[in-house]
Write a protein that binds this DNA or RNA. Structure first.
Lengths: 193, 193
DNA sequence: TCGACATGTCAACAGGTGTTGGCCTACAGT
DNA sequence: ACTGTAGGCCAACACCTGTTGACATGTCGA
């Protein structure tokens, strides 16, 4: 054990660790779990593959470290009720646009069980509460949150992964205008069946 | 070439070919492109891996053959305009529920360029025209079709791949009740921005 | 009956994977 | 100044991948 007071003492290798993590996120995001090789990640970070093992144990743990993610969802309770859909939509698009991590998680989750489990936890732990605070009948919260995930992830999939041209072409305002009402209905609309 | 009249003569190996294709679809659907190995597919089909190569050339071509897919979209022009959303939603869910092929395509498309391209073609060639026939302004058709894809694929992703519990729990009627209006708005609603 | 050809099996290849252990080097604490 | 140790590199391992070619078997037409 190096440090002791409260935060672990800064290690000389922190720069390397960070470089590995950044490279890992990019590779996982671009290639998915299996095609993102440790050798490629190490090459991007300009270090030896064995260093990755030393610092992160194995590929699975490396991914777990790289896929740490916070949606940073805004508090929606203070927002006018009819605007929560647009607000949440805009936030999600912005979050997606500037961070590889969610991309890495999404691509990996399709073929890797652990990544899928983490995706479930992400939505349960972060989106769930925000939706629950908005919904009248608490029992409805999980379904509504799930439906929001449906549209949010579907958008990310078609725009960033499949790159369907018409979806790629939409600008931020258009995305909010089209998807906002959908999210709004899933959050606050009359329930279906 | 074997046959000549109009349909190719039935080969003795057709059963094997079909077994390979079935096994390939299941593996690609369950594991994605890279994790679905030719050896595993051959084992499922109870034949030697080299037979797969003989009949389909290589893995990429095998996938291309296995991912041949027809959405069998119904004609929506005869349907009352306010019901097209529910109708299309119900059809897509049914189609998804009973055929591995779309699953194989979806899982593979996330990490394989060729599969992604095929997914784009699928929507352009099959969903595009159906939507175009419904929309007044032809220029809007691609965007609307893309939005439908957004919600449809997002639902498939969260329900069948990520298995988000609340989404898995929905029964057919609930899916149509929740997603139908969304699809309806993307098809016939006022355009956003 | 015989031979051509389709069908199938077996073993191996070349390359890439995650992962490991040994070795060198340079800095930090004494 | 010295030494222990953390940081880093190299070579190798055991395994798995797609793919290939040589060989056996069976079937069908002439």
């Amino acid at each position: 054990m190096t440090g002791s007071t409260e935060t672990t003492k800064a290690r000389r290798s922190d720069a390397t660790r960070a470089a590995i993590l950044t490279a890992a996120r990019e590779r996982f995001a671009a290639d998915g779990y299996e095609r993102a090789t440790i050798r490629a990640i190490a090459a991007d970070a300009n270090i030896d593959p064995s260093m990755v093992m030393r610092y992160y144990g194995n590929k699975e743990k490396l991914f777990a470290a790289a896929a740490e993610f916070d949606l940073r969802l805004p508090e929606l309770t203070g927002v006018p009720r009819e605007e929560v859909g647009a607000r949440l939509t805009a936030h999600l698009v912005d979050r997606w646009e500037h961070d590889d991590t969610l991309m890495a998680l999404l691509r990996a989750a399709v073929t890797n069980q652990a990544a899928a489990e983490r995706m479930r936890q992400l939505f349960a732990a972060q989106l769930g509460p925000v939706v629950a605070a908005l919904v009248e009948d608490r029992a409805e919260a999980p379904v509504r949150a799930g439906l929001v995930a449906t549209q949010a992830l579907g958008f990310a999939l078609t725009r960033y992964v499949l790159c369907l041209p018409p979806v790629v072409a939409l600008d931020r305002a258009a995305v909010v205008a089209w998807l906002g009402p959908t999210i709004q209905r899933y959050l606050t609309g009359e329930r279906g069946e």
